[in-house]
């Protein structure tokens, strides 16, 4: 059970990244590679708030959230907006990788290349739950990510703006003709994704420490979660993330420390080979 708890906690990280990807993907059709790097920067900002400035957790979390949201908005303005009128190509792929790398570079430059421990808002005393032990921070992380994923899913079905986001993903021009400001929607999606990344950073850091290389792994595993769940599906991404987390933990526990990444990679290959639209995705017919 301890292994399962560990898997769910790791999975929560991947789900979190997948959620961020989906938020942006739905509104502006771009996979924001830098999303995981936003979380990484968030962990350092949380460190600054909590340790350098000595702020209480209740102040540090919203402050980090806002700061990362601002970074995400800046990213949209400089890395996505200029490409909107250009057709095809993988420019957004290159620019978002660029932003991620830049954020990694800034983190390494400012806070060094060694992992930094961010104080957890919870006591380090582990809990025993359902026959396994789990850190309080990890449990909170799992629950919050679950709530976030389900909440966003419901939000996109129940609120007008969520509906507008789904509609824009389906038919951008028709959405514009209905009076939707698709640009603002895209910008809003980046802001939201940044806000989420920042708000969760404290809890992420409680599990991983703050480290400039954190972004790469998270970016890739988060993408595998989407590949499993089907792009644009919040629930799918949530399930995908937790599934990979469990797979990771079980492989690490029963096969060996070096195997989890290789196994997840193999699963990724298998998914692309057999169900390229994700386990929950449908097929689309191509038009000329």
């Amino acid at each position: 059970m301890t292994t399962i708890w560990a898997g769910l906690a790791t999975g929560a990280l991947y789900s979190l990244v997948a959620i961020g990807y989906n938020v942006v993907l739905l509104a502006s059709g771009v996979v924001n590679f830098a999303n995981a790097y936003l979380i990484m920067i968030g962990t350092f900002l949380a460190y600054v708030c909590l340790v350098d400035w000595g702020l209480p957790v209740a102040a540090a979390i919203p402050l980090t959230g806002l700061a990362v949201a601002v970074i995400a908005v800046v990213e949209e303005r400089i890395a996505i907006r200029p490409l909107l009128n250009r057709q095809g190509g993988h420019a957004a792929l290159i620019t978002t990788v660029g932003v991620g790398t830049l954020l990694g570079g800034i983190a390494a430059k400012v806070w060094g290349t060694e992992p930094v421990r961010v104080p957890s808002p919870f006591s380090a005393e582990p809990l025993t739950l359902l026959g396994g032990t789990i850190q309080r921070n990890d449990l909170v992380l799992i629950l919050l990510v679950l709530a976030l994923g389900v909440g966003l899913h419901l939000w996109s079905r129940r609120t007008l703006l969520g509906l507008a986001s789904l509609a824009t993903a389906e038919n951008r021009q028709a959405a514009q003709a209905r009076g939707l400001n698709v640009r603002a929607l895209g910008l809003g999606a980046f802001a939201l994704a940044g806000l989420i990344a920042g708000l969760f950073a404290v809890f992420v850091a409680g599990r991983t420490y703050a480290h400039f290389h954190l972004g790469e792994t998270l970016a890739l595993f988060g993408f595998v979660a989407i590949a499993i769940g089907g792009s644009g599906s919040q629930l799918g991404g949530l399930i995908g993330g937790f599934a990979i987390g469990l797979l990771y933990a079980v492989t690490a526990r029963y096969v060996g420390d070096s195997y989890p990444q290789i196994v997840v990679f193999a699963v990724f290959l298998l998914i692309l080979l057999t169900r390229p639209r994700g386990l929950f995705g449908g097929a689309a017919e191509r038009q000329v």
């Binding site: 993988h90 792929l93 990788v97 993408f223 590949a227 070096s258 990444q261 692309l272 080979l273 390229p276």
Partner: peptide, 29 residues
């Protein structure tokens, strides 16, 4: 290439990034 090129685009990019990531693990295994 066979799985990665089925969808291409982001899938292939991520798949190849992933390849780089697993080098240390493969070396160890």
């Amino acid at each position: 290439g066979i799985p990665g090129l089925r969808l291409g685009g982001w899938s292939l990019a991520m798949l190849t990034f992933f390849l780089v990531l697993i080098i240390p693990n493969l070396v160890k295994v």
